[in-house]
Simulated scan of single mutants.
Amino acid sequence: MKPWILGLTGGIGSGKSAAAQHFSDLGVHVVDADQAARWVVEPGRLALRKIAEHFGKEILLTDGRLDRAALRQRVFQDENERRWLEKLLHPLIRQEIVANLEQASSPYAILVSPLLVETDQHRLVQRILVVDVPEALQLQRTMQRDQADRKQIEAIIKAQASREERLRHADDVLNNDRSEEWLKHEVERLHAFYLTLRGGQVS
């Protein structure tokens, strides 16, 4: 029987990756859209060539890999450039995700994606779990983690779906405003529940 797919999403700094790691530790097959996004722009792949043609060679590091910081700066300053990049990358990322999900052998698999509800990636899943935290906590955690400035993080939060929008799509919500121990406990509780589901739905 094919595993059903759970979409796991949340804003930057919400703790999606930590939650996904706990699910993975429980034996669930996890596919990370961010990782897929990294694979499609590896040296030698078509996407990287097109990005370099479009933005110029200064978007590459000396070893030929993509300079993510430089690219991020360009696309967050210009809406049209961001749209161009998304149009190029989204179909490629989707192919990568689908191929990886097909390798799953656990009862259900997880697609972790910060852009689950903004892109058509939500069509790949049968159920959506949103990891939710207040925006002030998102900012604080991300600034600590990335050593990035507040303005850049606020721009990223603005570019992602709003908290309300995400929660509107949610079948399940995991409030991650407490400790790491609490998060682990909540993941275990949800995992036990998900194992009882067929096709991601309550029968």
Rank of each mutant, 00 (worst) to 15 (best):
V117R: 07
R68Y: 12
R68F: 07
K57H: 05
R163L: 10
R83T: 08
R65I: 02
T142M: 05
E118I: 09
F76W: 03
S14R: 04
A148V: 14
D172A: 15
A104N: 01
I157L: 11
K57E: 11
H169N: 13
R150E: 10
E42Q: 13
R72L: 07
L195H: 02
R38V: 00
S106C: 07
T196P: 06
L48Y: 07
L46Y: 13
W182S: 12
A104Y: 02
V125Y: 06
I12C: 04
G15F: 00
R65C: 03
V130T: 06
K151V: 06
Q121F: 15
V187C: 14
G56T: 15
P107I: 02
I156E: 03
V98H: 06
D177F: 08
V28S: 02
R141Y: 04
L167P: 02
L71V: 07
S162A: 05
W4K: 00
F193Y: 11
L167T: 07
H169W: 14
E154N: 01
F23N: 02
W39L: 14
E188M: 13
E188W: 14
Q35L: 05
R150H: 05
I59Y: 00
A18H: 13
I110F: 00
K87S: 15
L6R: 00
A69F: 15
A159T: 15
L8E: 10
S105R: 14
S14F: 01
L89T: 00
A20Q: 02
E81A: 13
D146H: 11
S203T: 15
H191I: 00
D132R: 14
L61H: 15
P134I: 05
A148N: 03
H90R: 12
L88T: 01
S105F: 08
V173Y: 02
S203C: 13
L137A: 07
L71G: 12
E188L: 10
R49I: 13
E102W: 11
Q95W: 05
P114E: 11
E154S: 12
S179C: 00
N100H: 03
G7R: 10
Q126P: 09
L139P: 05
A19M: 08
E180I: 11
L167V: 05
R68T: 09
S17H: 00
S203H: 13
V112W: 00
N100F: 00
T119N: 09
Q138I: 08
V133E: 11
W182F: 12
L190A: 13
G56M: 15
L174E: 04
D63A: 09
I5Q: 12
L197A: 01
Q147K: 11
L115T: 05
K184G: 03
Q126W: 10
R189F: 04
P114D: 03
E135T: 09
R94S: 12
R49A: 14
F23W: 04
P43E: 07
A192C: 13
Q77H: 13
V202E: 15
W39R: 08
A159H: 07
A69M: 11
E96P: 07
D25K: 09
V41N: 04
A37S: 14
L46Q: 13
A148F: 02
R83V: 05
T142N: 09
K57C: 10
Q73T: 15
E164V: 01
L116C: 02
A52L: 06
L89W: 01
L66A: 04
D34M: 01
S105D: 09
L183P: 07
H191N: 06
A52Q: 12
R65M: 03
R49L: 08
V130W: 00
D78T: 06
